[in-house]
Design a protein around this nucleic acid. Structure first.
Lengths: 332, 332
DNA sequence: GTGAAAGCGCTAACAA
DNA sequence: TTGTTAGCGCTTTCAC
């Protein structure tokens, strides 16, 4: 028995194929009676729409395009998990593009993903090229930027302020009694630079900012790099008594390096990480981190882009963050 | 200017549309001269094939379907990364299905992914339902099972032996002088059960296996669970002097719990993990683990499924594993 | 609110 | 080896 088509469903329901199509994708354009008949016929025949035919005829696909910098960074697997959750059971599927933190690559990939026109685009960060923004506007699809926040999104945006988060975290270190606070960062993408700016602001507001308190690299982040950067930091800034790390890989690496070198945490060195990826709360001592709503960002972005009920009514959603204060900054 | 179609390219090259189609997808069926002409015309017009039309006409898509148990488990993000690498630049794209460690769910998802017929299927493990195996055979697509090894794959297979890996790791603990070795496991899927079997074999071969040396749960693995299971293990098996952990989340969690309780690693307790996910080598002390070729499994599976040059010529590829011996099992 | 006709761009099957 | 013909299943457009 071949797969039933719209024509088969129409025959079963006593209507034409096009009416079935309408009943399925824009029920409000069809009378109540017909809708019911069609629904029964669909169930009876086990009809499943053919996406290719639909896409070919309309030049619109049912994909939600998701552009993220990296597959291996747990930050984005969390976000993707949230999107996946929200799309589950809907008629949309997700198509993922990995930009490797490169706007040009992002533009290239997106160009290829924009044909046929997807049902929506979720894209990380604010730093799209002019070309990319133009393509997105021309495509006329809903676009949700994620991870960051801005008063002037391309279309919609959901995220939080990295400057503020870093500033609050740094202030937490200051409030905990640390006097000489350093910054450790890897993969210095625009959001990382904002965290650095927030750090600098908090330090400047409470005294003098010295350049030697910053140790950063553009390499991808990992645990070992935390150790390496701590070495760098303590040699250029020996009086350092606390570090704010760009992310949790680094903060964990810093803690391990302290254990190796016999540096007492939190007494001799306070540590604060970023994103709170799950291990920070388990280490000994546990590490203070900035808890960010990664999964929720994904979920909301998906809801906004498909215009689901329950989606926020405003195009700008600032989800904020919380400081999870733990042992690594609890000076006695 | 509208997007060029096969007809446009054909006109430019002075041939028919179908010839262009053939020149593009099976060059060997077309004369050398024509192929060159077509190639020039394609470049000149910037022709890009329309996937939907192709899929609709042939009922075959250019997707490689990848079925994995979980999005959040780093084991699978590594594998996916390998597949993504291998597919990059080819004409194939990947379509990912998350089964949540459930064969019925796997069957359900796969059924929906098999229409239109994909170009290939990569599927985790050996434990497909009969229905699933049947569907896969009927579909007539190349199938590569991954993560495990078996003499009788559905079609092709690339992985390693979990029993042997666990047996070797346990033997390493025995050789390191540990006498009372326990097993800690979470997410006891079939591969985990094989690791447990390998553990039991090594223990039995060297003395007597006692049931109380095993502490497992079916909950998803995480760092905290390592601590919880260590508690369970040491209360039911107080003489325990080493643990083999199902995976690295748990082994890290065990180490942290030892630090909390003042248990000296490796002297009072030896620890060995599984998969070597990157943090094991960084902890203090560093943790011995079984290094498994996750990325390589992904790369090879993709190469095999698309029949790429450079793919192994045999349908069964055992990639093996290595024991990365570190401080956590180096008893003085 | 509903339907008929005309493709979307490609490939299978057959013909030359 | 190359071309012709006839759809794939759906949506668009336009008519009623």
């Amino acid at each position: 028995m071949p797969k039933p088509t719209l024509v088969d469903v129409g025959r079963e329901a006593g209507v034409s194929a096009i009416t079935v199509s309408r009943a399925l994708r824009s029920p409000e354009k069809v009378s109540e009676a017909l809708r019911a008949k069609v629904e029964i016929a669909v169930k009876k025949l086990g009809y499943v729409p053919n996406q290719s035919a639909s896409t070919l005829a309309s030049n619109k696909s049912s994909s939600i395009v998701v552009m993220v910098p990296s597959i291996s960074n747990n930050v984005f697997t969390d976000v993707l998990g949230g999107i996946s959750d929200a799309l589950h059971g809907s008629r949309f599927n997700m198509q993922i593009g990995y930009t490797n933190y490169d706007s040009q690559e992002e533009e290239r990939i997106l160009r290829s993903f924009l044909n046929p026109t997807p049902s929506g685009v979720i894209i990380s960060g604010l730093e799209q090229t002019d070309e990319t923004r133009q393509m997105l506007e021309n495509a006329g699809v809903p676009v949700v930027q994620i991870m960051d926040i801005s008063p002037k999104p391309i279309d919609m945006i959901v995220g939080f302020s990295h400057d503020q988060a870093a500033e609050t975290a740094t202030q937490h270190l200051i409030d905990s009694g640390y006097k000489n606070i350093g910054f450790i960062g890897a993969q210095m993408d625009p959001r990382s630079l904002k965290r650095l700016a927030g750090f600098k602001k908090a330090i400047s507001d409470n005294g003098e900012l010295r350049e030697q308190c910053i140790a950063v690299t553009n390499k991808p982040s990992n645990v070992r790099l935390g150790a390496t950067l701590l070495d760098k930091l303590t040699s250029q800034f020996p009086e350092c008594d606390a570090v704010f790390c760009n992310n949790d890989d680094l903060s964990v690496g810093v803690l391990f390096e302290c254990q190796r070198r016999g540096i007492k945490v939190p007494d001799e060195l306070g540590i604060c990480g970023f994103n709170d990826l799950g291990i920070s709360s388990e280490t000994v001592p546990s590490i203070t981190s900035v808890t960010t709503p990664l999964r929720e960002i994904g979920r909301l972005a998906a809801a906004m882009v498909i215009g689901e009920e329950g989606a926020p009514s405003t195009p700008i959603v600032d989800l904020s963050y919380t400081i999870s204060a733990r042992e690594s900054t609890k000076r006695v």
